[in-house]
Design a binder for these strands. Structure first.
Length: 830
RNA sequence: GCCCCGAUAGCCCAAUGGCAGAGGCAGAGGACUUAAAAUCCUCCCAGUGUGGGUUCGACCCCCACUCGGGGCACCA
């Protein structure tokens, strides 16, 4: 630590950030100001969590922003006297590591652990307020054994199951993908066009939780960004309607269709079944249409998702030469097969009401099928305009439903169908079960043994973790089947139940399994007896504040919510939403677009840190604008941040009073500025307006500079109070500078634990305020009044003011609005 | 095509329905200096995308539109 003489020597030197960084890091290592959960810690808890990184290289600008923002929140609550747990770990399984391993021809662990070491060192230098004692790696067996344990628990509960299904297949990665990992028909990892493949795969039954995932979002209202809640609602996509039974000529069983518009049942003019469904194949079998049908199915199989998603795609289909009977009027309806009906939604069959559904109308017009209007909406005839009338109206041509509006007709027809045993109300979801198996090496092995006699047998718990076979000797290149299959010594085992020869499941789990419960692990990160201890969970969870990118709005957050509910049902925890508050930070872009090497606009974090120092980069990130907005690095000025920090730092060398001086004896004007800044900055931080909080600190720095140079002077206690407040507020964004200031002010480290000064409410009120006097909304005069003046007194003063009296001469006063102590508005006719 | 968010000074951004400017960047001038840098001081700049409406009063609320960003997109 510097001597006072050393301080003097440095007094007028420029602020040397490199020196200061090197100076304080070892001190903080020693003091561990952010260690959470000491046994004797009586402070109330606060769990602040940043989304954990993937170790794909060194930290980049995006990390710098995210961690700067998360750190403001974590450090603020520490200053406010909370026992803050702010942990970090690494999310390591997945394709980047595996692809790097293939390229380098080595074990993915090597690349992974190298990158972790790099990132960890960068985080330490970046002065993140992480609790380093809680770190874990998801690729360590000590972690992923609990993925396996959870998988087995889900399997026991029927929530993990295998089925044959047409799944998303990425030809680039040579693996299946979850629905959530297909973005606009492309693989989210490698941008290959995703195709369909019929495979037997593992699923988690997230659809069982669709209603709870939807309904529990009510409690997140106002605490999560609306955008994320909307995206999740859309993704789950609950729709309500009815299933209706249609008798089929020549078939013993009726076909059930799903519709959201049972009120238009009389308007059904044909039926459509999904061309790729078993139902379609069965209906076509034996008819003269069968040959054409098979050809049609082959044709649509060749279409990629991209083709299917094209908006102007013409409708295609084929008449199956079969007929259905409309249950309400006995009409004979043609049954068609088409790819615009999805096999895995609803029942895979629909009644087509072309007058009131655009897709059905497009199809009817293409195939020359009849259109019948059964809802009078006042719009033109759909069969002429080609535009279906989908809105509300009066039901016509519909027997007993005639004259009703949409809602009444739906209620009436549902009741009638139910009574006649022909249908009942139903719900459907866009959400599909979560496909969790992957045909790749670098993931958690699925802990299932396949036995010819016993079927799927879970690996006994006492044999967990089931570790990955050594990568050496395995060909990791993607080839459509798991590389684990080649590890014969690993694959061939005895059935734990019957002892017969059996084989291990060779697929690995989707890496999103790892991150779906990791936030539960931090409080128990060193516990090797269970995934998490109930006592720790009850102490720390749920997460009070989660910070991360909006890219995870659906995937990770939905899966985490699902896991939380499942674990709740298992009695392992007692809350139903894992993340109480969520902040989505924006991205860091350059010249308006995402940074990339190929675009040539990549800014290297390490370069920025070398040029401007950690504090200036953190400050620039936080001050750039509202946290949820993108930061355009070409708009921010790290050198401006350096300038401000230097200016603040210099104040600390100018203070002439001693630590502990009685602030109440200080200059009132500056004291008011200090307390207002503390008050406003605190509110701004709590409402995520960090840029505003910094503006308040800048104001106080300016006011203090002025007070020292030409006001109450450096010896006044108020200047010390102000600079100490600045150091504490600045500690949220500029840990090095503020620590240095704190020392120069005569205090011992760490400023991070100094405590947010208590705001004196009496210093927040002004003795007098300026009230404005308006006539017809235009400002005519300003007067100084007491802040506690009454409306009546303010009005009296305003009306008596000479300027106003003059203005009002000859006018008729219509109304006077007084809003003490801010303004009086006199309305006159002019 | 549908839904959501945004638009304030040359730029980034502030403003419980009540004086449009908190803060910063950039710019201009000055002080200090042999000079430069650094520092300090002072100053400049818009009436809030467009058109209506509500109100005593609108950046703020309502309607329509323009532009920008994001999400969803055959889910019956």
């Amino acid at each position: 630590m510097s001597t006072s003489q050393g301080n003097e020597e440095r007094e007028h030197a420029a602020y040397d950030f490199a020196y200061v960084q090197e100076k304080w890091l070892p001190v903080w290592d020693e003091l561990t100001p952010f260690k959470s959960g000491r046994a004797d810690d009586a402070r109330p808890k606060k769990y602040v969590l940043d989304m954990f990184p993937y170790p794909s290289g060194d930290l980049h600008m995006g990390h710098a922003e995210a961690y700067a923002l998360g750190d403001v929140i974590a450090r603020y609550w520490v200053q406010k006297g909370f026992n803050v747990m702010h942990p970090i770990g690494w999310d390591e399984f997945g394709l980047p590591a595996e692809n790097a391993a293939i390229k380098r021809n080595e074990d993915p662990r090597i690349w992974t652990y190298e990158n972790i070491a790099t990132q960890k060192a960068s985080m330490r230098r970046y002065a993140c307020s992480f609790d380093w004692d809680r770190v874990f790696n998801t690729c360590d067996p000590e972690y992923y054994r609990w993925n396996q344990w959870l998988f087995l628990k889900l399997h026991e509960r029927g929530l993990a199951y295998r089925k044959d299904s047409a799944v998303n297949w990425c030809p680039g990665c040579q693996t299946v993908l979850a629905n959530e990992q297909v973005v606009a028909g492309l693989c989210e990892r490698c941008d290959s066009a995703v195709t369909k493949k019929k495979l037997n795969q593992w699923y988690f039954k997230i659809t069982d939780y669709a209603d709870r995932l939807l309904d529990d979002m009510q409690q997140l209202e106002g605490l999560w960004p609306d955008k994320v809640l909307t995206m999740q609602r859309n993704w789950i996509g609950r729709s309500t309607g009815a299933n209706v039974q249609f008798v089929i000529e020549g078939r013993s069983e009726p076909i059930s269709i799903y519709t959201t518009r049972p009120d238009t049942l009389y308007g059904a003019t044909f039926m459509v079944v999904a061309a790729d469904s078993e139902l379609a194949a069965e209906l076509a079998a034996g008819t003269t249409a069968d040959k054409d049908f098979k050809a049609y199915v082959e044709k649509i199989k060749a279409d990629s998702d991209i083709d299917r998603l094209a908006t102007d795609r013409p409708k295609s289909g084929l008449f199956l030469e079969r007929y259905a009977i409309n249950p309400v009027n006995g009409e004979k309806l043609q049954i068609w097969a088409s790819d615009y009906v999805l096999a895995d939604y609803g029942t895979g069959a629909i009644m087509a009401v072309p007058a009131h559904d655009q897709r059905d109308l497009d199809f009817a017009r293409a195939m020359k099928l009849p259109v019948r209007v059964v809802v009078e909406t006042g719009e033109e005839d759909p069969s002429e305009t080609g535009i279906a009338t989908v809105g509300d109206g009066t039901v016509i041509n519909s027997g007993s439903l005639n004259g009703l509006n949409k809602a009444a007709a739906i209620a009436a027809i549902n009741a009638q169908l139910e009574k006649d045993g022909l249908g009942k109300s139903a719900r459907n979801y866009r959400l599909r079960d979560w496909l969790v198996s992957r045909q790749r090496y670098w993931g958690t092995p699925i802990p299932i043994i396949h036995c010819e006699k016993c079927g799927e047998v879970g690996v006994p718990e006492n044999q967990l973790p089931l570790t990955l076979p050594d990568a050496a000797g395995l060909d990791l290149k993607p080839k459509g089947t798991s590389p684990l299959g080649a590890a014969t010594a690993w694959v061939n085992v005895k059935c734990p139940k019957c002892g017969a020869d059996a084989k291990r499941d060779t697929d690995t789990m989707d890496t999103f399994v790892d991150s779906s419960w990791y936030f539960l692990r931090y409080p128990s990160s060193t516990n090797n007896d269970e995934p998490f201890a109930r006592k720790d969970i009850d102490t720390w969870l749920p997460v009070d504040q989660y910070v991360g990118g909006v890219t995870h709005a659906i995937l990770h957050l939905l899966y985490s919510r699902f896991f939380t509910k499942v674990l709740g049902d298992m009695g392992m925890l007692s809350f139903n939403e894992p993340f109480t508050r969520l902040l989505n930070q924006g991205m860091v872009v350059m010249d308006g677009s995402a940074m990339s090497k190929s675009r040539g606009n990549l800014v290297r974090l390490s370069d920025e840190l070398a040029h401007h120092g950690v504090d200036a980069i953190r400050l620039s990130m936080v001050f750039a604008g509202p946290p949820e907005d993108d930061v355009d690095w070409s708009d921010v000025s790290p050198s401006g941040s350096v300038k401000f920090l230097t200016r603040a730092w210099r104040l600390s060398g100018d203070i002439a009073s001693a630590p502990g001086v009685d602030f109440t004896k200080g200059d009132v004007t500056l004291r008011k500025a200090t307390h207002k800044a503390l008050n406003d900055a605190g509110i701004a931080v709590e409402t995520f307006r960090f840029n505003v909080a910094i503006a308040r600190v800048m104001e106080l720095v300016n006011a203090t500079r002025k007070a020292i140079d030409s006001g109450c002077g450096p010896a006044d206690p108020a200047t010390r109070e102000a600079v100490e407040a600045i150091a504490i507020m600045l500690s949220l964004v500029a840990p090095y500078t503020s620590e240095e200031m704190w020392e120069r002010l005569g205090h011992k480290p760490a400023v991070a634990r100094a405590g947010w000064p208590t705001v004196d409410p009496s210093l927040l009120v002004d003795e007098s305020v300026v009230a404005i006097i308006q006539i017809n909304g235009k400002i005519k005069e300003r007067i100084e009044v007491s802040p506690s003046i009454s409306d009546a007194d303010l009005e009296k003063q305003a009306m008596a003011h000479p300027v106003i009296v003059e203005e009002l001469k000859g006018a008729t006063i219509l109304k006077v609005i007084a809003r003490a102590p801010k303004l009086v508005n006199i309305v006159i006719n002019s």
